[in-house]
Design a protein around this nucleic acid. Sequence first.
DNA 1: CGGTAAGCGAGACGGTACGTCGAGTCTTAAA
DNA 2: TTTAAGACTCGACGTACCGTCTCGCTTACCG
Lengths: 207, 207, 207, 207
Amino acid sequence: MQAYDEDVVTAPARRPGRRRDDSKDDVILEAARELIAERGYDGMTMDAVAERAGTGKATVYRRWPSKVELTVDAVVCARHVILTIDDVPDTGSLRSDLMAIRGAPQGSRTDELMSGLHQAAQSDPQVAALFHEQFVTARTRLMRGLLERAQERGEVPPGRDLDMIATVAPAMIAYQKVVAGRKAGPEFIERMIDSVILPLATGVMPD
Amino acid sequence: MQAYDEDVVTAPARRPGRRRDDSKDDVILEAARELIAERGYDGMTMDAVAERAGTGKATVYRRWPSKVELTVDAVVCARHVILTIDDVPDTGSLRSDLMAIRGAPQGSRTDELMSGLHQAAQSDPQVAALFHEQFVTARTRLMRGLLERAQERGEVPPGRDLDMIATVAPAMIAYQKVVAGRKAGPEFIERMIDSVILPLATGVMPD
Amino acid sequence: MQAYDEDVVTAPARRPGRRRDDSKDDVILEAARELIAERGYDGMTMDAVAERAGTGKATVYRRWPSKVELTVDAVVCARHVILTIDDVPDTGSLRSDLMAIRGAPQGSRTDELMSGLHQAAQSDPQVAALFHEQFVTARTRLMRGLLERAQERGEVPPGRDLDMIATVAPAMIAYQKVVAGRKAGPEFIERMIDSVILPLATGVMPD
Amino acid sequence: MQAYDEDVVTAPARRPGRRRDDSKDDVILEAARELIAERGYDGMTMDAVAERAGTGKATVYRRWPSKVELTVDAVVCARHVILTIDDVPDTGSLRSDLMAIRGAPQGSRTDELMSGLHQAAQSDPQVAALFHEQFVTARTRLMRGLLERAQERGEVPPGRDLDMIATVAPAMIAYQKVVAGRKAGPEFIERMIDSVILPLATGVMPD
DNA sequence: CGGTAAGCGAGACGGTACGTCGAGTCTTAAA
DNA sequence: TTTAAGACTCGACGTACCGTCTCGCTTACCG
């Protein structure tokens, strides 16, 4: 998702006038991210964003029509490694696949940002949809891909409810972070993989 | 959680003066609940709460020091059937125990209220802790109790990571509602029980 | 003006129940006076009056129906020496008559109280009338009496506009205090007598 | 007195940003004046002022930090013909000078506004000082000027206490209006001039 | 190379919610 | 029935934020 500019299509020929300084986009987004992480969504006031970014409010509003949409971009355009199945090389076993994406699934401050975005999603169904796509669908799709790959290798027996199983890990991680307000660190994820995901997928209990 | 009154302990002898009309508490809380459900957290104005409750704003603020804390109580003191292990009769099998609590796990409007409270929790760590206790710990504890009972019956083999398994169901339900923004209806829950919880707990795959 | 009690007439036979503690009247009035002098009319809150008097607000309101009327009584029932012509012995000359009443025309804090009452009078025409009677008519009447006495002695020639002259001194004193916010001390009054009142009344210029 | 802007001196170079719309000042002040005249000082709500002026409350508070100070400006900046000695042509006699300024000493609604301002002055010494300057000093100064001019013409003998005499007319007029709550119409003023001011100033009694 | 149209920082603008406080009323237990 | 205490309704005050608009300046392009 890029900064909004609805004239891009209708005005292919360059318009006269000073060009928009696109470098401001990143400065503003970073200011928004910092403020969300520091003070939460409510504490991120548009005045504060503009001040920290060293811009005027109009410059912010020229790019994003509302606080909610700025928040969306601030969070979504963070260095999120939105992994797809193609980003994860086949290591030969489901466990090592999962462990490979365990360590660095996101950038820094993702927890606070995700929480802030979730709060923004409360006010706007479109944002909620975006949030869903970014933090729900994308992750479930990746999990589903890994499970199918494991099924092709024979690790996962046929007949499993892959859709449901693919939801478990994202659900538990998001739950830890957004609902329970705890960290979902590598230890937690490893324990979850071994106690929940692998047993479910392969049918082999840890005993 | 009750309406705040820090003098309750230090003044065991009844103080003189008009007593607080405790019936107002419920009226105000119900007004807050209605407004959250109707208009969302932001739409729940303190003036609107007072007006709908038929009180003055001062009366609201005498009981709750801020909108956030009112929201907490409004949600928490709702007719939540905060089930404990003692509320669930032993039906003889884990599956029927789970199905028994599937249908009416909460009162009406719990989804909207939970969402509103979660938004309020963003602004205040204490609220977050309360939210956690109400919607996280309580549910995990119940699940853990059911699992232990099943283990005593021999349904669940020893050595299972009960803490982790007890988290799965609350996480997936909350995820559906708060994060994904979908309903977590009886069909979903039944499918989850059969595809995820029972296999994990008993080791018996749904073949 | 006494504390209000409209039942006094309709219930000549002693009624049952606890008798009203009339000593409270003075305590409350004094508290009101102190607060007006200390903090002005706005700063005299009814809660503060009750607290300083050691009573409840209901006790205050049982005696005076509003803040304005309490203020009136607080000011009017002060130790105002509401002088009449009979209180001023004929000293034989207008100047010595005037100088006689110069020094202690009122009790203490009269300036602040008069100012507070004037503010109260803004809200209520009845209070304004009372204020007028207390601080305007009474003083003008006294002056007029002294002037007539001097006229009988031959000090004041006939044909003088006594009504107008009688207004000059009260006007200038009240102006100093209420409008200009200055003290109207003995020096000011003496100077006024010699520069304004006596020349006007007797026709003898000071030079 | 102008709307507050303490940076005016320290920032001679125009600051960036949208300039304050000075036309709002007058709209707000007029709204305040109307409301004071219609409903009195207490009835002049800041919300009502903003609504009638067609602005937001913030715009009012950006210019005046409190209701009291708005009231001051509303009254002081009214179409008060703050007459100075230069505004009154020398008519050749003190009496005709005085009669010349008798008719139109102020604009419309001055009495209500003066009363409202006086009430506001009760709460704030600074306001009291301003009130004093506007309604006390300015008027006394004008009177003093007229007296000096008459003295130069030989109408007023030397040795008179001009300061004291200059105070008499403002005092009696303000007394009539603010303290006694009566009108000070042209008849009253003419009578005062002939019975009090001229005798005092010239030493010629009205026989 | 100069006009012009847009972007820019700054900040005033209308609106609306928040949380505080005072006036006057009502309710309790005790005297 | 009065008292002290204090909870009650109502409504104004002053603050803060959102999203818009306007100012004077700067930057580019286009004729």
